[in-house]
Design a protein around this nucleic acid. Structure first.
Lengths: 230, 230
DNA sequence: AATAACTTGCACATCGATGTGCAAGTTATT
DNA sequence: AATAACTTGCACATCGATGTGCAAGTTATT
């Protein structure tokens, strides 16, 4: 049990601090869970545990139920997404939307589980609540863009916002499927977001290339092949 | 057991024909399964049975295992998709792609389960095989369009084909979520497919409005199941 | 009206997964 | 070196779901 009793009992020796390896294992479990649940949303604790290099029993030392583990995953995902998207503000809604895609992309692995949980499955409603602020943000961007005459007006903003969200998700799916490089996926998700928003592919490319924020965002490391477009 | 023993035993009275209500129940089960699995891909047989107005036990009179039921659902879905998409051929790949979206849309309810199964979950590979021909078809269309200079060239055809597929799927998701009208969804799925393919929203609208095949396809009214095969 | 086809409800076996308790081992920390 | 923190393996209880057998009921069809 990792439970750290914070309440100091008087007239008793101070309890020893929790061990470091335990904390590492906790992280290992979370990482393994993310990875396994990406492949199969119903992966068992047994599967997750062994992917983390631990026994199933040990998981219960860190999370008292499976649901608690998943909830924690979800919270972290939401926190990351929120943190990544919060600072985005731009006079050009198109650029802002592309940025949303780009930032999301850089969180792919960790965020995908959350996204999936939020969209499908019986808990959709409950889990999705945490993402509400993010969705509102995207919706606001869409509205802003529509008013500025930069985005399509043939689809109702609310719907459009969700479609953009969905389009971005398919890029994440494709990324997992085809093991896309970081740089490639980065550009891809921006292109798709802009396309869904109504731009032609040439307009999208132009916008991205002309905008320093967007090209810069592509740099942050290319763990795979950094190779430019062929 | 619905098992119709076709082998005629000599020197015995001909076995009575299977009853009609049994066939109806079978259909009811399939329909209920489609509907329930749309909400929760892991819906139990109990849930499906009661949605069909039958007892769980009765399902085993029609399907010997749960997997068999799901497999049948899947086969039907594939058959319908294949049948709906096969006749599509058009000199303009853009129109053909929009048609793909439109035809898919008209099968929404029945097809969504199949699509989900094909994309997510541990059986992805296996289930997806049946859709291979369809996917090749879309890929061919994309290639055709790229060669004709009608579609975007900044995304590799294979990837683009899957992204279009994914975009269409999000419309289906949105449809279930927001209970979109048939006519609206019809147009939506075409717009999104074309947008993902690289057209600007104005180009897409123009193309759709100028093309009789596409506008006509929108008509087929809101009548539900036009009548099951056989 | 007779009969086969079907449905239902119950009891039961089985499976995979979750979650607990405990004793015996390891390992980080003091 | 001592000790608390942690992990492990086992046994066990429980749960929800699948699948079967069977006897007793219904209902379509002849």
């Amino acid at each position: 049990m990792t439970d750290t009793t914070t309440s100091p009992r008087r007239a008793s020796r101070p309890p020893r601090a929790p061990r470091r390896d335990a904390a590492e294992n906790r992280v290992a479990i979370l990482d393994a869970a993310i990875s396994e649940l990406n492949h199969d949303p119903d992966a068992s604790l047994e599967t997750i545990a062994s992917a983390a290099g631990l026994s199933r029993r040990s998981i219960y030392g860190h999370f008292s139920t499976r649901d608690e583990l998943v909830a924690e995953l979800n919270d972290r995902g939401i926190a990351r997404v929120t943190a990544a998207l919060a600072p985005i503000r731009h006079s050009d809604a198109r650029i802002a939307l592309a940025l949303v895609g780009a930032r999301l992309w850089s969180e792919v692995e960790d965020v995908r589980v959350t996204a999936q949980l939020a969209i499908r499955g019986p808990r959709r409603e409950i889990v999705g609540n945490g993402l509400e602020p993010v969705r509102r943000g995207v919706l606001d961007l869409v509205r802003q863009g529509v008013e500025a005459g930069q985005l399509r007006t043939d689809i109702e903003p609310g719907t459009l916002a969700r479609l953009i969200e969905g389009a971005a998700l398919s890029v994440l799916d494709e990324a997992v499927r085809a093991d896309i490089s970081r740089g490639e996926g980065h550009r891809l998700v921006m292109l798709v977001a802009l396309s869904t928003a109504g731009l032609s592919w040439r307009e999208a490319a132009e916008l991205i290339d002309a905008s320093p924020e967007l090209t810069l965002a592509a740099q942050p490391d290319a763990s795979h092949h950094a190779g430019d477009t062929e």
